[in-house]
C-alpha cells in the first residue's frame, strides 16, 4: 500500500460531490426521511414487533456499500484506466495495483463510515438500538463490504469506458438494492423469494445484519454466501481486469 497514492485517491474522492453525497450522505438521509413518517415509528406485528425504521437501518447500511461498490468504485477505476492513468503509473517504480488497492481502501472506508453514520443517526434520532451482537455485526459488515468492492472490480473489469461502467453499474444497482431489502425487507419476503435473495451477496448480508442487530451471531449460511461471493468475484476481477 502506497500512502501517497492513498492520500491522493482520498482527496480525489472528496472532490466528487456526487460520490460523497450518494455514498456518505444519501443512506442516512433516506433513513431520516423514512423515520420522519409517523407510521414508520410504530411497532409492526408483521416485523416481529420491530418498527419499520428499525428494519431500515441495516438497509441504509447496505445502500452505502452498494453505492460505493457498484457506482463510485467502477467509475473511479474505469476513469483511471480510460485516461491512461494506470498506464502512466506502469512507467514509475510504483505498481498500478497500488492505485487499485488505494481505491478499495478509500471506497471501503467511506462506505463503512457511512454505515456508522446511519447507525448513529438511527440511534440518536429514532432510538434504534445499536446492534446487540457487535462482533457479529462487524464481521457481516466487513464481509459485505468486501463482496461489494469485489463486485465493483468486476464491473470495472468488464467496462471499457466509464459510460459502460455507468450502464452496467445501474443495471446491477437495482437488483442489488432489491436484495438488500429496500422495497421489501428480506425477512418479509415470501419463502421461495427469500431463499433466492439470500443466496445473493446483499440478501445474505441483509439477513446477517438483521440477526446480529437482534443479538444473535449471524448464520454461517449467510456468512458463507458472502465469503463465497467475495472469493468468486475477486477471482473474476483478477482474471478480467486490464490495465489499459
Amino acid at each position: 500500500m502506497n500512502t501517497a497514492v492513498l492520500r491522493t485517491e482520498f482527496r480525489l474522492f472528496c472532490r466528487e460531490p456526487g460520490a460523497v453525497f450518494w455514498v456518505f450522505l444519501f443512506p442516512t438521509l433516506l433513513l431520516v426521511i423514512l423515520g420522519s413518517i409517523p407510521s414508520f415509528r410504530e411497532a409492526d406485528t408483521s416485523l416481529g414487533g420491530l418498527r419499520p425504521v428499525d428494519a431500515y437501518v441495516p438497509v441504509a447500511v447496505l445502500i452505502a456499500l452498494i453505492m460505493a461498490g457498484v457506482q463510485t468504485l467502477p467509475q473511479a477505476l474505469t476513469g483511471h484506466r480510460e485516461r491512461g492513468v494506470l498506464r502512466r503509473m506502469r512507467l514509475t517504480p510504483v505498481r498500478p495495483s497500488a492505485l487499485l488497492s488505494a481505491q478499495m481502501v478509500v471506497q471501503g472506508t467511506v462506505a463503512l463510515g457511512s454505515a456508522l453514520l446511519a447507525l448513529l443517526v438511527g440511534r440518536l434520532a429514532f432510538g434504534v438500538p445499536l446492534p446487540r451482537q457487535p462482533g457479529g455485526y462487524l464481521l457481516a459488515l466487513l464481509l459485505a463490504a468486501a463482496a461489494a468492492l469485489a463486485l465493483g472490480s468486476v464491473v470495472s473489469a468488464l467496462s471499457r469506458t466509464t459510460k459502460i461502467a455507468g450502464a452496467i453499474g445501474s443495471a446491477v444497482f437495482f437488483p442489488m438494492m432489491f436484495c438488500a431489502g429496500v422495497w421489501i425487507p428480506v425477512r418479509e419476503m415470501p419463502h421461495a423469494m427469500a431463499r433466492v435473495v439470500q443466496s445473493t451477496p446483499f440478501g445474505a448480508a441483509a439477513r446477517a445484519l438483521d440477526q446480529a442487530a437482534a443479538g444473535h451471531w449471524p448464520g454461517w449460511e449467510q456468512l458463507g454466501v458472502l465469503a463465497a461471493w467475495t472469493i468468486l468475484l475477486t477471482a473474476g476481477a483478477a482474471r478480467w481486469f486490464r490495465w489499459e
Partner: peptide, 29 residues
C-alpha cells in the same frame, strides 16, 4: 523505471488533481 522517465502519447491525469499534487505524488515514487 528509476533511470527512465517517459511521457506517453494520449495520456491524462485525473481532472481534479492539481499540478502541485501531481508533482508531489510522482516525486514520492
Amino acid at each position: 523505471s528509476r533511470v527512465l522517465g517517459a511521457q506517453l502519447q494520449q495520456s491524462e491525469l485525473p481532472p481534479k488533481l492539481t499540478v502541485r499534487e501531481a508533482l508531489e505524488l510522482y516525486a514520492s515514487f
